[in-house]
Design a binder for these strands. Sequence first.
DNA 1: TAAAAATACTCCATAGGTATTTTAT
DNA 2: ATAAAATACCTATGGAGTATTTTTA
Lengths: 305, 305
Amino acid sequence: MEFKGLTYFLAVAEELHFGRAAARLDMAQPPLSRQIASLEAELGVQLFDRSRSQIRLTQAGEVFRDHARDILERLDAARRDTRAVGLGGAGRLRIAFVGSASHGVLPTLIKSFRSFYPDVELALSAMNNAELHRALISREIDIAVARPELVDDEFRRELLCHERLILALPDNSPLASLSKIRLADLAAQTFVLYPRRPRPSYADVILGLCQRAGFTPAKLELTQDFQSAISLVSVGVGVSVVPESVARTQRPGVIYRDYEGENPGTALTVHARLDNRAPQVVNFLEITRKFARNPLRPPAGGDRP
Amino acid sequence: MEFKGLTYFLAVAEELHFGRAAARLDMAQPPLSRQIASLEAELGVQLFDRSRSQIRLTQAGEVFRDHARDILERLDAARRDTRAVGLGGAGRLRIAFVGSASHGVLPTLIKSFRSFYPDVELALSAMNNAELHRALISREIDIAVARPELVDDEFRRELLCHERLILALPDNSPLASLSKIRLADLAAQTFVLYPRRPRPSYADVILGLCQRAGFTPAKLELTQDFQSAISLVSVGVGVSVVPESVARTQRPGVIYRDYEGENPGTALTVHARLDNRAPQVVNFLEITRKFARNPLRPPAGGDRP
DNA sequence: TAAAAATACTCCATAGGTATTTTAT
DNA sequence: ATAAAATACCTATGGAGTATTTTTA
């Protein structure tokens, strides 16, 4: 038994006339009669009552007709759903990102993706760079938004944005009253940096800056992630050096200040496995690329691929 | 796309290995690979991720797998249900009967059928003979249990039972005290007979009896059906002549008495259209035949056809 | 290098077409 | 006698087999 047989059967069941059904199916009557006969033979059951001029469905035929309609509808649904997921219009995308990306362009990028692909379910989570790397390798996630970029030739990369570094100071710090702050002015401060593991990490980038500015911080406090570092700053433990975008969201107890001197900045990069050709991933990277080109005016609706 | 393709796809989706899946399907690997490829081409979507040694389902593949399982299960259900109805083990049977059959062997026959075919839904209704005839012709019912038999060469017949006639008298009738009652003793009574239309009917059979017993009833009251006739007897309107089996169910105000003289009896006959080969009908007639042969010991379970 | 999937090609089963017969009204 | 379904017979598409190549770890 095949779908074609069900379609043929339904045509006859609806027309109650082999000739008309054959015409509707755009085929000759004899093969149609044979198909129905073989269907009946396979089921071991009469589907039509041919005893009179006008053929009729038997009870069994009515039951089979209802099932056949249901099955063909479900086949259609299977096609639609599978195509939608296979072409990226639906499905699931697992995205993880570093904590310091929560307040910059990433939320806007994600909103943009959602507006293009509203039926793709997004699973979002925050991790540090090391966890991002591991999760991407193990395929626990599809997309990793990392800072700095993850080094692995299994990965495909799209630069999302590059931003300057700024200082995060406790709001009661005497440094806040200075008109200009140089890195060297911070030599006596406790530096709150992250992540604690694995080293070398973003923390070492900052320590390198200090070194080249001619000092080593008086004291170093390492936290697991960006959020913890800002929390320590807010309660006066020390100062930190963070991406500029985090200043957008003010936080009680913390003020942000520019500084003079070397500022290598920091880049937020979107990663996916090279071998992950899932359309949801391809589409996300595509939107990321357009977005990075002009983050203030994200690609408008309508040129959806 | 065909059921075979779904089966093939499921095998590969479950084994995640074309070779093993082909072995399980008892076929060679190349045609299996081709079938899957053509499935993917038809859907325009990758179902498997072949980028690494161990193949995997894509998201679209997972969606399609779930749908495919569902569809194949439903196909199975369609086969089962259709066969059950087509072989008479399930479905619907519409039976109508004359009112005077409600209390004799018919209920037992129906119980017997139900015990053989518990999944056949019975639609029961009461009609007079004329309505039975019309309903059977117009296919509103499948089985007609009539008294006397319906004359139509479109019908197949099975005699269900033959029973003697007895008198139905109001319980306060002076006739009840006679040790023997002859029909002629009733000459002065009002006869309550049925059905009113169409004539000639069962009523005329009884009137013929009276004629041959040498009298014409003093008064005649015609009712639409058996139940109405007994009701009139119960309130003292007159006497009636009814099938013996109705005496089994006593009714307030009515007593039943044998009479002396000609007693042609009356037969209850089961009818179906000759062209109605529905297995439910065939089975019902089959059981009727066995049942009529020995109504006290209906065919035991186990020799179900 | 080995294992597995894809491709090349060949064959045959079967679906579909045309012509005709059977059946039912 | 007519309309419709069933049957007979033929053709061709495509599904499955074997042999081989390509690909990936």
